[in-house]
Write a protein that binds this DNA or RNA. Structure first.
Length: 562
RNA sequence: UGGCCUGUAAUGUAAUGGUGAGCAUACAAGAUUUUGACUCUUGUUGUAUAGGUUCAAAUCCUGUCAGGCCAUCCA
């Protein structure tokens, strides 16, 4: 009965308009065009969800097209990682394509442009060409080679292709308008000489097309109806259309480029160049470091595809610059994991508790609910015994009444187990608490149905039985940068804001024995602490957990108010 | 000083000339709680600015201000 029509974003509105104006719905076709020069990040996820999402809502094909026109930066490793990330996000492309598939066609069209007098070979130095380009406020001047005869252009271009010229010595330029207020229209470069081996075409080519020349024509070849890109390409649209004008048949579909604002996230950077820098300079341990905003980093951190898709959905799209609060992303993963992640107990900073009136050598396997948010999640058994670990910060010798946890002379509930009372504690020479002596109420066992078990005590603690505990390493992550928008400062380098405490490794954590058999990628809620996943580095001998995100901590807020 | 684009709560977005500008997150207060989680209830904060058109403007027009993009043989 929901009458609510969900509002269309501006790109969907454009598509609806085109449809209303007679565009055949079956002609809709989209593409996601990554350059294989780095890993995909959460900003790309927005574009992926947008393009593949349009494909889904309009039942239209979406191509994956690698924009591989620059062999200097591009590698097969990135191609593989990108494909993996898109599939992991849950999307399937229609065709896997490459701009390099079209090098031959592009070359033929370039010759056509030369013949039409719309392109010429320039053999000036890059410095000279830059000088003639003018500035945004001053027009450029024509190249002395601008009116080179067609035959000569053809011959030179042929030689460029055949590898008879050095890199940087010759380029093919479109002949447009050196006085255009749009710098991109001032006789832009179509081809440069590059004697580099390409990850797909090998040494076949000595010339490579520039983005502007390759992209729109590739869209045309693939009959992409809507070529969606980010805002910084807005000025390129005029050139995109100009290049299309030169070759458009007038009969088939003519692609249109439209632009939306890239998604930025607070406390991180979203440029591949900067992310590469973080990797190469060792500020992080690779593209998939769990602190990275890459898809692979988020995956390793414990994010789910569902959470990332949800984030893209609730973030929406628009044309204004934005810095989305990372809290929204964190909300999305907590929301998903709350519904799906099994609850377990783990103690990160252990302190020993001895239950003095619990029989020596006794052990009990107690029932524990796997997920109160999921009726079908079932339950498991957790071992209980005389000596257990609890969290250091869950005990104080004395504290005010706002402290709901264990303190001398007071009671607290052990989750899924008994109510205990702290009687005394032991300290080492520095005054650190080394042992807490408690007594337990034998009749208070969770779920036993006794009067005592129904007693209400304010605090509930997580714990693990020392005899049964599994030693684990836990990696705690914090934001990579201390500034909301680290690369938005004109006077400062983004690296000045790197958070020195973004990774804290805890090698002395203990988890309940049910975790012994967990596999890489499994996700859990460590009760009262947060959501954790098993890292790739984990082995049977050494469990390694990543903290995906902590739980909301109201107590920390109360504490900090003081 | 050129061209293009963008300004709606703290953040991200919706309202497409027509009810008190909606939603989510964040924040705050309360309820509940064998997770100080989750959930539930309530609440705070907004159309950059000045004019104009109109019965009616966040929406259309003009000026101003602010921000972004554009001078790689990158994409």
């Amino acid at each position: 009965m929901s009458e609510e029509k969900k509002s269309l974003n501006f790109l969907e509105q454009i598509i609806e308009e085109d449809l209303a104006n007679g565009l055949d719905k079956n002609k809709l076709r989209f593409r996601f065009p990554p350059e294989p020069n780095g890993y995909l990040h959460i900003g790309h996820a927005a574009s992926i969800c947008l393009n593949f999402g349009l494909g889904l809502t309009y039942n239209a094909p979406v191509n994956l097209r690698f924009d591989d026109t620059n062999p200097v930066k591009e590698e097969q490793e990135y191609v593989d990682a990108i494909k993996n990330d898109i599939q992991w996000l849950g999307f399937q492309w229609e065709n896997e394509l490459y701009s390099s598939d079209y090098f031959g066609q592009l070359y033929q069209w370039a010759i056509l442009l030369i013949k039409k007098g719309k392109a010429y070979v320039d053999d000036q130095s890059s410095e000279e060409i830059a000088k003639q380009k003018g500035t945004p406020t001053e027009p450029g001047t024509n190249s002395p080679n601008r009116n080179r005869p067609v035959e000569e252009n053809l011959a030179l271009f042929e030689k460029m292709k055949n590898g008879e010229f050095e890199e940087g010595s010759h380029i093919l330029r479109a002949k447009i308008d050196m006085a255009s207020p749009n710098m991109l229209m001032r006789d832009p470069i179509m081809y440069r000489v590059l004697r580099k081996s390409h990850h797909r075409t090998g040494d076949t080519w000595n010339i490579y097309p520039m983005y502007d020349w390759a992209h729109g024509e590739s869209d045309y070849i693939e009959q992409i109806s809507h070529s969606i890109c980010t805002l910084e390409f807005k000025p390129h649209r005029q050139l995109y259309d100009w290049f299309l004008d030169q070759i458009y048949s007038g009969k088939d579909l003519r692609p249109k480029q439209r632009e939306f604002a890239r998604r930025n996230l607070s406390y991180t950077v979203m440029s591949k160049r900067k992310l590469l820098q973080l990797v190469e300079e060792g500020h992080v341990n690779g593209w998939d470091d769990p602190r990275m905003p890459t898809i692979s980093g988020l995956r390793r951190r414990g994010y789910t595809p569902e959470s990332i898709r949800k984030f893209s959905e609730v973030s929406g799209i628009s044309k204004r610059d934005n810095v989305t609060d990372v809290a929204l992303l964190e909300f999305c993963i907590k929301d998903h994991l709350n519904k799906t992640a099994p609850r377990v107990m783990a103690v990160l900073n252990p302190v020993k508790v001895i239950i003095t009136n619990y029989p020596e050598g006794k052990e009990e396997w107690l029932d524990a609910e796997n997920n109160p948010e999921d009726e079908n999640a079932g339950s498991r058994k957790v071992p209980f015994s005389k000596e257990i670990y609890i969290e250091q910060e869950d005990f104080r010798e004395e504290a005010n009444k706002k402290f709901f946890r264990l303190k001398l002379g007071k009671e607290v509930r052990l989750k899924n187990a008994y109510i205990i009372k702290a009687e005394s504690c032991k300290k080492d020479a520095e005054g650190n608490i080394t042992e807490i002596h408690c007594t337990y109420d034998e009749k208070s066992k969770s779920g036993s149905g006794t009067e005592e078990s129904k007693r209400r005590v304010k605090g509930t603690l997580h714990w693990v039985s020392i005899a049964h505990a599994v030693h684990a390493e836990v990696r705690l992550y914090d934001r990579l940068f201390t500034d909301e928008a680290p690369d938005a400062h004109k006077d400062k380098d983004f690296k000045e804001f790197i958070n020195p405490n973004s990774l804290v490794i805890n090698t002395n954590a203990f988890v309940e024995p049910s975790l012994q058999d967990a596999r890489i990628g499994d996700k859990f809620q460590f009760q009262r602490l947060g959501y954790f996943t098993i890292d790739n580095d984990s082995t049977a001998e050494r469990l390694v957990f990543n903290r995906t995100v902590p739980l909301r901590d109201s107590w920390a807020k109360i504490e900090h108010k003081k």
